[in-house]
């Protein structure tokens, strides 16, 4: 899938996290090719799926109440052995530099961004107009 973009626009609802995830996993499998039967390929695919799931859930959790239904847009592309996904939403700005939760205090939240940062090679956040864009990439 060199040089082709896949764009997916989903309603900002929890239910659709699975669609986002399955798309992520299919795209990753496509890119890995035959290696998806190898442990390294499976790990790559799982990591990618996990990161997309976390980013999507994060967008949905912070989606604003408004008259018009909110959407989350995902764009996948593959270039030079690097699979990139950007997640685009219209929520309030936030920071991805959140502290690592202290596990000993049995935290319930705050793992999402930690997972993203750990499983992906590069994670950037930017604000464009009224939109948040998290861009994440992982190299094969």
């Amino acid at each position: 899938m060199n040089n082709s973009n896949i764009t997916l626009t989903l309603p900002a609802e929890r239910l659709f996290a699975r669609v986002a995830r399955q798309t992520a996993s299919s795209v990753a499998d496509l890119v890995i090719g035959d290696d998806r039967h190898e442990p390294a390929g499976r790990d790559f695919s799982h990591a990618f799926e996990l990161a997309v799931s976390e980013a999507f859930t994060n967008s949905v959790t912070h989606a604003r109440e408004s008259a018009t239904p909110q959407v989350v847009k995902l764009t996948f592309f593959f270039e030079q052995r690097q699979l990139v996904v950007s997640v685009h939403d219209a929520n309030d700005p936030f920071t991805i530099e959140t502290p690592v939760p202290d596990i000993e205090s049995y935290p319930e939240n705050g793992f999402g961004l930690l997972i993203i940062r750990k499983v992906m090679d590069h994670v950037t956040y930017r604000r464009e107009g009224n939109y948040n864009i998290i861009s994440m990439s992982k190299t094969l």
Partner: peptide, 16 residues
Amino acid sequence: DFIDSSGIGAIVSASR
């Protein structure tokens, strides 16, 4: 077959 941070959060909170 799949667990994410919300799933971990649910198990951790169950423990609490």
